[in-house]
Each structure stands twice: as C-alpha cells, then as structure tokens.
Design a protein around this nucleic acid. Structure first.
Length: 292
DNA sequence: AATTCCGCCAACCGCAGGTTC
DNA sequence: TGAACCTGCGGTTGGCGGAAT
C-alpha cells in the first residue's frame, strides 16, 4: 500500500483535508535547521507526497508547496552539490536547444540536479553570455553559436580532459556484456546517450551508436559541413527517461562532496565553464551569421 | 574602511492540469 | 458535474556574499 493511500485512509476526512493555508501564521522565508530536520525526518518515515498533510503532521507552519520545494531542492539525499560539470553544461545546452525552457524535463536528464538549479544556471551563465554578445538568448544566431561553436568546444575539452571519447564511440559489440545498456560514458561512469531513441523529435536526421563515425563526437564543425549553420549541427542522440543514467548510480554516491566525488571517479569537475569557452571568435561567428 | 554594485541561488508566486469529494 | 483542493511547472524576486570603487 502506498503512502498516498495510507495517509488518505487514515487521516483524511472532509474536515481535515483542504485546510491548506487556512492557518494565518504560515511561515515564509529561509528554512531553519530545525524545520529541515522535521521535514526530512517526516519524509524519511512516511515518504514523499501529500505535502499539505506532511506540513501539518510534521508540525511545520509551512505550506505544502513550500515543504515540497524545500525537499526537492535541498533536502533530497540524492542531490548533487557544486558546480556543473562540463558534461552537465553540454547537456543543458543540448537539451535546451531541443526543449526550450522545460527546466524540469531537462533536469530529469541530470541526476541529482533540480529544475531550479538548471534554470538558475541558464539564467546566470547562458543569458549572461547572450548579453555579452548583444543578442537575444532565443535568437537563431545565439542558438547557432551554441550549437556550432560552444558545444564543439565543450566536446573538445571533455575529450581532452578524459581521453575517453573514443572509447565511448565504440560500437555496441565493444561493450562488455555486463554493461548496463545505453550508458557508456564520456568520463568514467558518466552516461552518454546512444541509439536507444525516444519518441522526441531529433536534432539530427539520424544518429546511430553502431555507426563508428558517430557525428555526435565530431568537434568544431565548419559552417560548410553537411547540415551547415542553422541546421541541426549536433545530434547527441539523447534519450528520454532515467534508463540513460543508470551509470550515474555508480558514479554518484550520496554524502560525498561533489568535487571529491568527481575527482576520485575521474569525472570532470566544473572548473571549465561556458564563460571560459567564450572568446572574440564567437562575436565574429555571430556577425557572419547576421550577414548571411 | 565604507559603500555600492553585481552575481548567485533559495524561495515565493501564479498558473494549469489533475484529483478528490 | 462542479467546486475545492493538490501537485508540478516556469517565472520572478529578495537576500546574501564577494568584488569593485
């Protein structure tokens, strides 16, 4: 029997339900350590969901909404902390190209990251760069610059840092039989998408992992290459759903500092960032785009 | 040393869609 | 069937800390 059902059958009644925000002394603002402990303890025992009930039963003078947000964005044990890794930044760029401001959907592909984090990253980093380049973050020019300039640079840096891209590009037959499906990684244990395609529209016409010349690993595409600027230069072959991230269960261990974690596992720390990839070439690229 | 500016991020708000009664 | 309520999402804001002046 699930928590929802238990809570409903045991505690709900027409008079006890629907009392959200009836109490006038609803607390707002930063959470205290005591509140965190109350919420975490309650969720640990009873599970997630029914947040209004959680708020009341845990003795919190918070709205259910507030409790849910605090849990999802801060207290969840599987949350990651620290800077975005190169892989994560690359993934955000790619997924945003595909889905736009669907933060929660994008966050689903970044284990341990929240939609709030992804959204904040986008607003503080990516939009800042768009401002630098004096163009709209949603403009075609900016998106093309992301796809055709920054993303190849990210890939190049990832490749340079790990030297494992080639291994990742190997066909399925090169994978050990016990490999979790669809999760061969850029860095050790970090998943990369392959041919298990979802029902989403593709960025590129066809990308198959069995293709040893997988275009997703090609870097620095020239404006004249097939597809060209303005077309979908990159198809990472993104999948949909948690299956793609099973490698991360091994890669990420809760309770360990993110930086240490990544270092010890050979994964990239977030020292390299979008900002570090920006240079005057991008302004030139944009200018060329506008001239076309 | 004091003040101002700016970036980051936690938290709130409003809305939409789903669920319950 | 419709009102009340719940949940989740995306946009926005306010506070804090560090950098710049």
């Amino acid at each position: 029997m699930d928590f929802d059902h238990v809570m409903r059958s045991q505690h709900d009644s027409p008079s006890s339900v629907r009392t959200e925000e009836v109490t006038s002394d609803v607390r707002k603002g930063p959470w205290t350590a005591e509140e965190d402990a109350l919420l975490a303890n309650h969720v640990k025992i009873h599970g997630e969901g029914r947040w209004n009930l959680v708020a009341r039963r845990a003795g919190l003078k918070r709205t259910g909404k507030s409790c849910r947000l605090r849990w999802l964005n801060y207290l969840r044990p599987d949350l990651r902390r620290g800077n975005m890794t190169l892989e994560e930044q690359l993934l955000i760029l790619e997924l945003h190209c595909r889905w736009g401001n669907r933060w929660s959907k994008i966050a689903q592909h970044l284990p341990g990251r929240t939609d709030n984090e992804v959204k904040n990253y986008w607003r503080t980093r990516v939009q800042k760069l768009a401002k630098h380049l004096k163009c709209d973050v949603n403009s075609k020019q900016f998106r093309d610059t992301m796809r055709c300039v920054w993303m190849p640079r990210f890939m190049e840096q990832i490749r340079a840092s790990t030297g494992q891209f080639q291994a990742s590009a190997q066909g399925p037959s090169d994978r050990p039989a016990e490999d979790p499906p669809r999760t061969h990684g850029i860095g050790s244990g970090y998943p990369v998408y392959d041919d298990h395609r979802d029902s989403l529209p593709e960025l590129s016409p066809s990308v198959s992992s069995s293709d040893s010349s997988d275009p997703r690993f090609s870097s620095s595409p020239s404006p004249n290459q097939a597809g060209g600027i303005g077309s979908e230069c990159f198809g990472l072959g993104l999948g949909d759903g948690p299956n793609y991230w099973t490698g991360c269960a091994q890669w990420w261990q809760p309770g360990v500092d993110a930086g240490e974690q990544e270092d010890s596992n050979g994964c990239l720390v977030g020292e390299d960032s979008l900002e570090s990839l920006w240079n005057e070439e991008d302004a030139w690229f944009l200018q060329q785009q506008l001239l076309e």
